[in-house]
Structures are given as C-alpha cells and as structure tokens.
Amino acid sequence: MTISRRKFIRNAAMAASAVSLAPWSANITRGAARSRVVFSHTAVPEGREEAVRCLHALDRGMEALLQRPVREAWASLFSSSDVVGLKVSCLAGRKFSTHVALVQAICTRLEDIGLKKGQIIIWDRLDSDLDNAGFVLNRNPQKILCMGNDAVGYSRELYEYGSACSRLSRLVTERCTAIINLPVLKDHGIVGISAGLKNFFGAIDNPNKYHVACGDPYVADVNMFAPLRDKVRLTICDAMLAQYEGGPPYMRQWNWPYQKLLLTQDMVALDRLSWNIIAKKRRQSGLPSLEETGRTPGYIHTAALHGLGNDDMKQIEVVET
C-alpha cells in the first residue's frame, strides 16, 4: 500500500491536533513515553480521622502524579462541564470494595473544581452490589448520583474489538464524558489479578463470556472499546486493603492491609505493578506463583501490545509519597 506525501502529512497533522485538543487523555499517547504510578501511603479508613487521612493521601498522590498543586492537578484532567463516572469495584461486598471514604474524597476534589453533584456518578454493575458495599443509591441529580448498570441498561450498539463483542453500560456511552477508574487490588481465580483493566468487565453486559483463557485477550480487548479508551482519564487503585489469593471474593485469611493508593493514567503499568505486588506477597506466604497455578495474567502484555500502556518495567516510573 502506498500513501502520498501530502496525505501522510495531512493525516499526521490531524493526529497531532487530536492529541493537543485532549490534553487529559493519556490514552492517546499511552505506550509512547514513560508511565508514572504513584504509591501514596494511607491507613485503612475506618473512622472520620482516617477518612481525612485518605483525603490527604489522595492529594499527595495527585500532586505527585501530575506534578502540580492539587486543584490544578484535578483541573488539568477534568473541566466543570464534564460528567465524571467513578467506576468502583463492589463485587466483594462491604469488607473488600472501593472504600466509601476514598470516593467521598474524590467527589470533594471534583466539586472543588466546579463540578455540581449531579455531574458525578458513582457506578458499578448492579444497584445491589453498590448497596452491599456501603454506597447510598441515588438518582436525584441534586445529590451525587449512584447507580448500577441494571438501573440504566446497556447500549443498543454492539462494541467489538478483537475477540470481544459487548454492549456497554449506558452510563459509559450516554451519561459520562470522563471516567475515573477505582478498582481494588486483588488476586483473581481465573485471570490471575484484578486491578485496573479488569475493573471494566463491570461496564459490559457479558463479562461471563470472557472469564476464559485467563481473560487473554478479552480484558485487553474490552479496554479497546472506544468509549472506554477515550473516556478513562485517571485510575486510582484502592490498595488500602489487598488480597493475594482466593479472589475475587473477600477471603479474610489472604487479605492484608497494604495501606496504599496507586494513582496513574496508565492502567497497564498499574496492572504490571499489581502483579508484582501480588507475586511478592504470594512468595512470602509460600504460595505458588500465578504462573504455576495456570493463572498468568497475560492480558496485561496484550494490552501493552494494543498500545494501551506500558508493561515494560524499565518504562514505568514508581513514585512513593
């Protein structure tokens, strides 16, 4: 196939302008440069004091991630006209879901940059999952919204990439202009680990079809669906508690207080580091590696090959605060 010089230049210019028009969209440039993942230390929030500590950890993390003061950091990613979806992870119930205190802290910072409450939507797969995790369901736009996919349904349109073909939550396709991914860090009985990329199985109508072959390439393919690829601007992994075996449900004997938030714009880098964290903990506990149990999370490398981010440790910058 040949392409004229003029056409090449025109296409290149269009691509460049697309990047410059969306400065917050890490997705467009993902894979090209080093990726930063910030580890922000904090205690598990159980009371009001800890909730404040959680907010402080969030602020430290955002400053370190975007290298600017807190308010500017948030404003560099979101505008006051955005409708921001907070994709939490609630499958494991109150003991092991995205902490309410963390979500409250994020809402506070979004309101600080001018978003109204009704422009923030806390969501996951089911109303009942959100309720079980301690979130208060709400459809009144005077307050922060909170609802499951089952409350709004799925797109009529099918989204297809590679081996995956799904309908997406209408919250993703119709309501949100931006998404913050808020997964928890855990072992997963089929796909190895569940952190950033896997959390978006909660955005599709048929995740049951993709829990095969260690989720490879399905997890990566789902994250290539345009609405997800284009709208996810930030991932904050709630690793205040984490789990190195027996996931995705909560298993007390394998759950430990890791006491960190992991902030990034590169979900692939986050997942690569998450794998390392779980692998180390499994080694320390005398458990076989994920590879030895036939649960290698190969989808992480596949996602890197898709251009969704970096899985090369040399290209991942870890910052601790």
Partner: peptide, 11 residues
Amino acid sequence: VIDDRETGYCG
C-alpha cells in the same frame, strides 16, 4: 469453577 458471587459462562 465458580467463585462466590460469580456466575458461570452461561451467566
């Protein structure tokens, strides 16, 4: 093989 709170392939 299905974990707690999960469905099988059939959904």
